[in-house]
């Protein structure tokens, strides 16, 4: 087992900006001097399907995907998707999720109900589970669309990466005019 590698999963629904968030994360750890690999599936998943992005970093990373049962951190952009990928997590892993429900087709059409006790279910297995109202915090920061950055800030607390690298990565990956809002959103998440 390669214990020096940190395994992070970013999960949600196609179109939520998961790929950009995982790119900022990967850029940050590279700037901090680590080897990093990232994997996700494009294509069908862009049409509103379920999306999972794997980010792994450490001294040397082999597999581009997180081995089942070895996930350290799950970073969920949507509640139901956060649940769907818990099987990849190791016992005692950290779960942070956005308090957002996006209805899948079977729920939209009234054939199934959206499960209503998901936060409790996650907490029953992962007691440190942190539920974040990303939209509300991002609105406070100045733009509801920066919810992903709030979550990224919350995740950053769990990683031993100096703040300067996060800001450097944000500078590289976020358009200049949105940078200030994103910095603010990141700090709000980091202070949760």
């Amino acid at each position: 087992m390669n214990s020096t590698v940190t395994n992070i999963l970013l999960v949600g629904v196609g179109g939520q900006g998961i790929l950009l968030a995982s790119e900022i994360l990967a850029e940050t750890v590279m700037l901090a001097g680590y080897d990093v690999k990232k994997s996700e599936i494009h294509g069908m998943s862009q049409r509103g399907g379920s999306v999972v992005s794997h980010v792994r970093y450490g001294r040397e990373v082999f597999s581009p995907t997180v081995p089942e049962g070895e996930g350290d951190i799950l970073f969920g952009f949507e509640l139901m998707e956060s649940c769907r990928y818990l099987q990849l997590m190791k016992p005692g892993g950290k779960v942070i999720a956005n308090d957002l429900k996006i209805q899948p087709p079977a729920v939209l059409s009234g054939q199934m109900a959206y499960p209503d006790n998901l936060p409790e279910l996650i907490r029953s297995r992962f007691p440190d589970f942190l539920l974040v109202d990303g939209q509300q915090l991002a609105t406070q920061a100045g733009n509801p669309r920066a919810a992903n950055t709030v979550l990224l800030g919350a995740v950053s607390r769990l990683l031993d990466i100096p703040e300067e690298f996060w800001f450097k990565a944000l500078e590289r990956m976020v358009p200049a005019k949105a940078l200030e809002v994103n910095r603010k959103a990141f700090l709000m998440g980091r202070e949760l």
């Binding site: 087992m1 629904v13 196609g14 069908m44 998943s45 862009q46 049409r47 509103g48 399907g49 379920s50 081995p67 089942e68 049962g69 070895e70 139901m80 998707e81 649940c83 769907r84 818990l86 099987q87 997590m89 190791k90 016992p91 899948p104 087709p105 079977a106 729920v107 199934m112 959206y114 499960p115 279910l121 996650i122 029953s124 297995r125």
Partner: peptide
């Protein structure tokens, strides 16, 4: 064998999320 061989943990039967026309 490690904990990777444990049965997968999905708490309940979640509705699927297939791709859809926009």
């Amino acid at each position: 064998a490690t904990h990777a061989l444990l049965p997968p943990f999905i708490p309940i039967d979640l509705p699927g999320r297939p791709p859809n026309m926009c």
